[in-house]
């Protein structure tokens, strides 16, 4: 018995990136804020590129607290959806190439979301990563950390609870 030859790396990468792009860019609000996702294997980092329209306090200036909150919530939702999709892609249950605007996976719904604002958001790019602490059949709990220049100096963190999509998205 010989193991099947692994797929060429480029094919695997292309498939994963296409799946992520379909997931992220299918949501108008994510495009409005300009959020992008950087993928390393299954790990995602959300990037919020600075834009003048994201300012909430023009005197300081500082990012709008609501924008920070929205950025972390987007990171949590995409992080959770991606975790669900990843398992399905790897098992072959989902063909990411067939994903288009018409047949995107259903997204989890936010039940509640709590944000700690640790420092004021500086007028520059922000980053965030989500960690799924619990993902059950119906509910999930996700923690998100947001930072700007220094990874270990968080400017905001959040915890949210989510209702899982029916039939697992």
């Amino acid at each position: 018995m010989s193991r099947p030859r692994p797929e060429p790396m480029q094919v695997v990468k292309q498939r994963r990136d296409a799946a992520l792009a379909a997931l992220v860019h299918g949501v108008p609000y994510i495009n409005f804020l300009g959020i992008e996702f950087d993928r390393r294997g299954d790990e995602l980092t959300a990037i919020l590129p600075y834009d003048d329209k994201l300012i909430g306090n023009p005197m300081l200036p500082a990012l709008h607290g609501g924008v920070t909150s929205a950025f972390l919530e987007v990171t949590a939702i995409i992080g959770l959806s991606w975790a669900i999709m990843w398992d399905k892609m790897e098992s072959g249950a989902l063909d990411p190439i067939s994903l288009g605007p018409e047949n995107l996976p259903r997204l989890p719904k936010t039940i509640d979301f709590t944000v700690d604002f640790l420092r004021s958001g500086l007028p520059r790019d922000a980053y965030a990563r989500a960690r799924v602490n619990r993902s059950g059949r119906r509910y999930a709990s996700v923690h998100v950390e947001g930072w700007q220049d220094q990874r270990d100096r968080l400017f905001a963190q959040a915890t949210g609870h989510f209702l899982m999509p029916e039939n697992g998205g």
Partner: peptide
Amino acid sequence: EKLVGDPETGVIHGGAVSV
């Protein structure tokens, strides 16, 4: 429409409500 979070239903994203 630019604030939509669920393209299937057209419902506004929770993030916009939090703003």
